[in-house]
Structure formats: structure tokens, C-alpha cells
Design a protein around this nucleic acid. Structure first.
Length: 746
DNA sequence: AGCACGCCGACT
DNA sequence: GTCGGCGTGCTC
């Protein structure tokens, strides 16, 4: 035996471990153990799937184990994709192995298996490849020998079709395997197994359409995008276009341009708006070659879409946040639609923001990145004003459609949940055979209950937030932890049986509307009424087929779906979201209000909106009502500048919260270590905020792994910045996740 | 994350 | 005398 240099590889393990591991590669696998493939490896006394990162030249000074097997015949990722994943792992302080696992479709992910057997046959690559048997006529002209009538019919069909899947034959003839077996024996047909993709679209065909004529502003935006595509360099854009201004048409034509350059397109959409409507428009324009990735797919469908993309059989990928990890090569353009949506953030495991990662991947791929929204993130507007994003605006609706008219209904001193202004508007809408939606971002019947005797509020014993009375369920429920008591409950302080029902939720609105407009057919849509699978779609269908007049709901009606028959929108308690404990509360309020207002009106008739508010003084409400987003962003930026928020890319907020057994102070060591790490590795400026305001979070055991998400409030930020400026750490807790706009790191 | 090792309370 | 609680530490 000649002396032989051992082949050593670096492997990322999908566990919470901050380093990679090295393995020896047996001689017979040397050609296969390449970067981007998975390897089945021994790990402790377990056996699991790791991801090969590459070769190692200098062997580490300790004993190495050998890999069992290379699981993939082809690399799962290219080198540049691996580079992207490394960036992600380092930016989000997350183990690379876990990042890679997240990037993979479920179904081929987990191969963990313990035990002794080397003879475990299930250990191999993805096991979910679907196949079908296809029959083909072997000798088309040969006259058939005497056959049964059914066999002869089957043969006829096969000969006519050329080749035909077994499933199709079974659909036409019922059971036909005996006949097929006979035909095959006679050498008249052959059957072969081939791989098929599960098709998430089903079989419905789509009518093709053609590019529409663009408005002046659309054309200007498209020209800028095409010019950037021609340069083949990273070019980030913000497309700020009012509702109905035709952003999608700009996307479609920009994608067409990219495809024409032989490049591919990645389209990220918030989960909720991954409605058939948008996908249909893409299919109508581009036909085949579209892959979709979202949580509604089965593991098999997801896996198949992933393989189609990897093999270059899809030119356009449309998906929710995880699609940012799609194995799409040659990306020319990445579009993030509704870029302000919070659903681009993954809130557990690898806490990424797909909107941010779009910019990072786009930079690595030298692609055009287009962030589109009617109400962009304040950070995006800020970046645009500082030249880090090129700003494209669509200030007008297509075809000169007017914006809805908006009235404010002051609720000060009004005892009812529904304003007296809204009722006649509803009646008029119904009389005209049109529909209305009423929006209130709180579910339940009464949002808090207080004792009629002593005034004590009914609160959750775990979370110390007030319980919401759900009349239908007959319970008072905590919306944080689902703690529930029989409704409405008795006063915990004095035992009094009478509780005052304060604060209306959607259930209460529905109840009141049935009395106020008895002739209306009313639907309610919130997470209480959309529990079952498909109930969401059923409710929407009843609106679109006209079998309901009024839809009452929470923010799930504000997003995603179009309601073509809706001419009236009522917004109840518009300022509620301003009180949210989050420094982005004003931004959120403006976004949500603008979105709901945009729901009103249809092609022929301008919409009408009634906005109910205790006080409409706040610029978030006023500017949403006036459709003046420029004014909103100007004022919000001004406000943030005044309070001295570091320009939007400040830092990571880390949050810890304590338990009775382990108070927060005991975590100081861990907090300090993490902060030091962040400072050193990321060059970030980090401070610690005070304790989390509500004991919403329970930590057990190893707090290190249970890092919590909590948005800093405006007050938190003020304290943070004061501490920062005086170069002093503030007290004890908090972690948020890294919420830095990568545009600012570029 | 698992999984083992390890050292203190109530039990077939 | 053991079973089992979870604290600590390790995994090429």
C-alpha cells in the first residue's frame, strides 16, 4: 500500500453548536465528498446528517471519525450559495448547520437516526421522490393478436397517445393492470418508471395575457429598472407606489426584461398575500417555469419545487420569506412585494428578515433588488433619502381612479362602538347593493372587564394583561397564554359577580351591527372564526359571491385579498395600535390604516371610508386619512431625529427575562458575553435596556437557548440612547434580535 | 439539541 | 439499598 494523504472534510452539523467538525473520508468516497453535499456522519453516539463545507488541508491534532456515506449525487448548493449561507449564519449569530437545514425543504431535512445497524436501508438521500409508470406502444403498426376487448381498447389508447401514464389509464379504464401486464408480456407495450413533480397548481390552465400599457410613472420606474438590469451590477430600489398604482405590472415587465437577459427572478411576498390572484397573474404572463414556495405546500410538493428550481427548470420563483433561500441560480432580479410586512421576519429558530436578506443576496448575485410597497418601512424611506436605495414612485392610481373619500368620525363622548356616522353609510351601501367591511384590530366581545363594585380589572394570573371576554366561547381568555376562565368571571378582588364590559372587539361589533342594520348579512373574520382549515377561504368566497353584505374583521381582512364589491370601509378604534409598546407603533398604525383605506372602492365607483377615532390628532392617522404618505414619512423621520434615535440601523437589542428561581440579574454573565461578541464581531454598539415590562415570557432551564423577542418601545429607545450617549449601560435585561438594515452595512 | 455522567431525596 | 430528579459538559 502506498502512503496516502487522508482526505479530510469540514462538516456543518445542524445542531446548536457554534463550530464545524472534521471527518475523514473513506477512500471509496473520495470523489463524492464535495462541498454542498450532505454526509451521514457519526456524532457522539448519534448518527446524523451534516453538510459538507469543503476540504481541509491541515488536519486537526486529534482523532477523526469517518463519514458513513455521502447522501447526494449532486451538490445541493453552489459555492456562492454557501457563501450567502455563511453570511447569514454570521450575521444572525446562528450555527451554519442550522442555517443550511433551514434552507432545505422539509422532508429531506432530517435524517437523524441512532442505533447500531450499518444495514439501515432507509439512510440515503431524499425519500420522497415521486414516480409514475409510463406506458408506451412498442411496435405501433403491428396488428394486435387476439386480445380481450378491454385490452384492445387500452392498446388503442396507448398507441394513439404515444406514451401515457398508468394513472391516466386507470382513470379511463378503472383497474387495468392485468391487461397491461398481458400487453407487456406480448411485447406490445413497455412500461418505464420516471420521476414526476407534484404540481401545486393542479391542472387548471390559465388564460395568457400580454403586457399592459404603462402609465408615465410606471414607465419611468421600469426604465430605471431595465437600465440597472443592463448594467449587471447590484442595484437596490425602493418602489413606493400608492395602492392601485400598478406595482405588479412593473414587476412583471421588469422580470420579463431579466428573463430576456437569460437571468432568473425571485419574488418574495408576505405569506398572507400569497393568494391565488398574484400567482395567477404571473402564470398568465409567463406560463410555465414558475415555482412557488410557501407554507401551504405539502413536504412532497415543496421538495419537488425545490428540485425543479435546483435543476434550472423554473425561471421564476414566487414564495414567502423562506424562498430567499431558494436554490435559484443566475438571479437577475429579486422583488420583495409589500416590503414593510412583518411576516418577512422569521421569529424563531434562525431569526432572519427575508427583506433584509434580499438585499444581501442581491448584492452577492449582482442583481437588481426591488422593494415595493404603498407604505414602506421608515428605514427604507430613510435609506432612499440617503441614496442607499434608488427611489421610484408611483403617485397615481392607474386609469385615473380616484382615491377613496375618507371621513373622520370623532368618538369622544360617543357611547356606542359604532359611530352614528357609520350607520347611515352602511344603510346606503346596502341599499345600493354594495358591500362593506368593518375593521377593528381586536377580537372578542369585550377587551377588558372591570368590577362594577370595586373597579378592579380582570387580569391573567400568568401574564398580568387583561382578559378578553369571548361571548360565543363563554370564556374570558388571555390573548397571550390562552389562559381561560368561564365567562365572564367574578371579580378577583371582591368576589362581585357583576363585571363591566369595556372595550369592543370584533365579536361585539358583529353583535351591535346585527341590531343596527338588521337587514344586513354579516360575516365575521378573525382568528376565532377561521380556526378550521379552509374556513378562511369560505368566508372570503361568501363575500365575493355576494352572499354577504358586511364583513367584520381584524387585520386579516386588511391584507392580501381583494374585495371587488366593497365600496365602504369602516375603521373602528383607529388609534388603538398607536398604544402598542413598540417604537414603530406610529409607523404600523399608518401602514395598517392606509392599507384598510385602500380596500375601499372598485373600478367604477370611488370608495368611501369612515375612520372612527377617539382622537385623530396624531400625524399617523391624519396623513393616512389624507393619503399623504410623503407627509407621514417626513414627520416620522423628523420625530425620530428629534428624539435622537440613531438613524434606524442602530443596534441589536438583546432581551433576557428572569424567572422566580433565576432572576434576571443572574443572566448578567451571559448577556455580557453575548454583547461582547456582538461588539467584537459585528462592530455594533450595544446597550442593555431595562427589564421586559410584562412577564409574558417564561424561561426554563437553560435560558441561553431561549433568547426572546421583544420590540423596544419608544421609551426603551430613549433610555437606551441616553445610556449610549453617556457611555453607560442601562440596567438588566432585554434582547431583541438583530434589526439592522443591511443597506446600512453596505 | 441529545445524551451521558454525576450527585442528592423517596420508594418498589 | 436503588430509581430518578435535572445541572454540567461534550460531541470531529
Amino acid at each position: 500500500m502506498p502512503n496516502h494523504v487522508p482526505h479530510i472534510i469540514e462538516v456543518a452539523i445542524p445542531l446548536h453548536l457554534d463550530r464545524t467538525f472534521h471527518y475523514r473520508v473513506p477512500r471509496e468516497m473520495e470523489g463524492q465528498a464535495l462541498a454542498g453535499r450532505r454526509a451521514f456522519v457519526p456524532f457522539g453516539r448519534r448518527r446524523l446528517t451534516g453538510y459538507i463545507l469543503g476540504n481541509v488541508t491541515a488536519p486537526p491534532p486529534h482523532e477523526l471519525k469517518e463519514i458513513f456515506e455521502v447522501l447526494d449525487p449532486e451538490p445541493l448548493w453552489t459555492d456562492s450559495e454557501l457563501e450567502f449561507f455563511r453570511w447569514v449564519a454570521s450575521y444572525y449569530l446562528h450555527p451554519l448547520g442550522e442555517v443550511l437545514k433551514t434552507a432545505l425543504p422539509a422532508g429531506i431535512n432530517i435524517q437523524d437516526r441512532k442505533g447500531s445497524g450499518q444495514d439501515d436501508p432507509t439512510v440515503s438521500g431524499g425519500k420522497t421522490i415521486k414516480t409514475e409508470i409510463v406506458y408506451r406502444a412498442a411496435a405501433p403498426c403491428e396488428p394486435a393478436p387476439h386480445l380481450g376487448a378491454k385490452a384492445a381498447d387500452i392498446l388503442g389508447v396507448i398507441r394513439e397517445a404515444g406514451d401515457i401514464p398508468a394513472a391516466e389509464l386507470r382513470r379511463r379504464f378503472g383497474t387495468c393492470s392485468p391487461q397491461l401486464k398481458r400487453l407487456a408480456e406480448l411485447g406490445l407495450v413497455t412500461g418505464e418508471t420516471r420521476e414526476v413533480y407534484r404540481n401545486p397548481f393542479g391542472d387548471d390552465a390559465v388564460k395568457r395575457d400580454t403586457p399592459r400599457v404603462l402609465s408615465r410613472h410606471q414607465q419611468a420606474a421600469l426604465d430605471a429598472l431595465c437600465a440597472a438590469l443592463d448594467r449587471h451590477a447590484f442595484a437596490p430600489f425602493l418602489l413606493h407606489g400608492v395602492t392601485g398604482s400598478g406595482k405588479t405590472e412593473v414587476y412583471l415587465q421588469a422580470i420579463a426584461q431579466a428573463l430576456g437577459q437569460d437571468k432568473n427572478a425571485l419574488v418574495l411576498v408576505p405569506e398572507i398575500s400569497l393568494t391565488p390572484q398574484l400567482v395567477q397573474r404571473f402564470r398568465a404572463r409567463f406560463g410555465h417555469g414558475i415555482a412557488i414556495l410557501h407554507s401551504g405546500l405539502s413536504d412532497g410538493e415543496r421538495y419537488d419545487e425545490w428540485r425543479r428550481i435546483r435543476r434550472g427548470q423554473a425561471r421564476i420563483v414566487i414564495g414567502a420569506r423562506s424562498a430567499i433561500f431558494a436554490p435559484l441560480a443566475g438571479i437577475g432580479i429579486i422583488i420583495v412585494d409589500e416590503e414593510h410586512e412583518a411576516s418577512f421576519k422569521q421569529a424563531d429558530g434562525l431569526r432572519y428578515n427575508a427583506r433584509d436578506l434580499a438585499l444581501v443576496r442581491g448584492r452577492m448575485e449582482r442583481a437588481v433588488v426591488l422593494l415595493g410597497s404603498a407604505t414602506p418601512l421608515v428605514t427604507s424611506r430613510y435609506a432612499a433619502e440617503h441614496g442607499k436605495l434608488a427611489l421610484l414612485t408611483l403617485p397615481e392610481r392607474v386609469e385615473q381612479r380616484p382615491m377613496p373619500t375618507v371621513e373622520l368620525a370623532p368618538m369622544k363622548g360617543v357611547a356606542t362602538a359604532i359611530s352614528p356616522l357609520l350607520v347611515p353609510a352602511l344603510e346606503a351601501t346596502l341599499a345600493a347593493g354594495e358591500q362593506a367591511i368593518i375593521f377593528l384590530n381586536r377580537r372578542g366581545f369585550a377587551t377588558y372587564l372591570v368590577c362594577a363594585e370595586c373597579g378592579a380589572p380582570l387580569a391573567c394570573p400568568n401574564c398580568s394583561v387583561s382578559l378578553t371576554y369571548h361571548r360565543q366561547r363563554g370564556q374570558s381568555v388571555c390573548h397571550y397564554c390562552d389562559y381561560a376562565i368561564p365567562a365572564p368571571g367574578i371579580c378577583p378582588a371582591c368576589g362581585c359577580q357583576e363585571l363591566k364590559e369595556l372595550g369592543a372587539g370584533t365579536e361585539r361589533l358583529e353583535h351591535d351591527l346585527r341590531e343596527l342594520v338588521p337587514q344586513a348579512r354579516i360575516l365575521r373574520m378573525d382568528s376565532d372564526t377561521t380556526g378550521g382549515k379552509g374556513s378562511h377561504g369560505r368566508l372570503l368566497a361568501r363575500m365575493s359571491d355576494g352572499s354577504a353584505d358586511i364583513l367584520v374583521g381584524t387585520q386579516m381582512i386588511a391584507k392580501g385579498h381583494d374585495f371587488p364589491g366593497v365600496t365602504l370601509v369602516g375603521v373602528v378604534n383607529a388609534e388603538a395600535s398607536l398604544a402598542m409598546p413598540d417604537f414603530r407603533a406610529a409607523e404600523r398604525t399608518f401602514q395598517l390604516l392606509s392599507q384598510v383605506i385602500g380596500r375601499a372602492g372598485r373600478g367604477d365607483a370611488p370608495g368611501r371610508v369612515v375612520v372612527q377615532a377617539q382622537s385623530s390628532d396624531h400625524y399617523a392617522i391624519q396623513n393616512a386619512v389624507r393619503h399623504d404618505s410623503d407627509a407621514f414619512y417626513r414627520q416620522e423621520l423628523e420625530f425620530r431625529r428629534e428624539v435622537g434615535y440613531p438613524p434606524f440601523s442602530f443596534l441589536a437589542c438583546l432581551g433576557f427575562s428572569g424567572t422566580a428561581e433565576r432572576p434576571v440579574e443572574e443572566h448578567a454573565g451571559t448577556v455580557a458575553r453575548l454583547l461582547t461578541q456582538l461588539k467584537r464581531e459585528k462592530g455594533l454598539r450595544v446597550e442593555i435596556l431595562g427589564p421586559a415590562p410584562a412577564p409574558l415570557y417564561r424561561l426554563r432551564g437553560r435560558f441561553r437557548r431561549q433568547i426572546l423577542l421583544k420590540s423596544p418601545t419608544r421609551n426603551d429607545l430613549r433610555r437606551l440612547i441616553a445610556a449610549w450617549q453617556q457611555n453607560r449601560p442601562a440596567a438588566s435585561t432585554i434582547r431583541e434580535y438583530v434589526d439592522i438594515d443591511p443597506v446600512d452595512m453596505m
